[in-house]
Amino acid sequence: MRSKKDPDRSRQAKGNFSRRGFIRGVGIGGGALGTGLLENAAEAAPATAASAGPGPVPITLNINGKPVNLTVEPRVTLLDALRNRLDLTGAKRVCDRGTCGACTVLMNGKSVYSCSVLAIDAQGKAIETIEGIAEPGKLHPVSAAFWNHDAQQCGYCTPGFVMAAKGFLAEHPNPNLEDVEHGLGGNLCRCGTYMGVRQAVLEAARTLKTQGGKNG
């Protein structure tokens, strides 16, 4: 194929854009999960206001109310940081192009596609993932409603749907069916669970209201 993609694809960055720190910090032991695969922060260039990278950079993310330190290249998406570095695998990688919604998380309370956010760019924002919305062993009212209405089959889209629904209900506490259909237009399901999802979101709205609007 005669590709007309940018011609310098295979070329490594040069000049000002040095690849300092890139790779040097890895490869030994592979790193344990939970703190990031690119362990050696000392060898990674620190992020400054002006520039960071292209090699691994220490960053701090505020995830589910807690600061989390990790070291990633700037090109790592928030989704891949969550899944591959932090073992937070509720958000799924499905289309990986900001279309399907399976990777939905909340940033400052608003639903976003974490596949289309750079992890480094998510610093300073309150990131909420499905792992953080309920106490261990308990279900958030939105999750419970999904269960009650069988709004899941294979379940791979479900965490993204739950997070999109949670964000939607924060903005629309009294939705009707039409609102739900418009408000969850950013998520796709392949098994065909939409009938259940509609009812689940309406039920979750009622539950959240009787609980005094405590949506997480």
Binding site: G30, L33, A151, P159
Partner: peptide
Amino acid sequence: KRLDGPAKASGRARYSSDLNPKDLL
């Protein structure tokens, strides 16, 4: 209700693509 519903609706269900065993490549 389906038995694996809570695991799926809470994101705790671990699919094979979610596994992060030690030393994963």
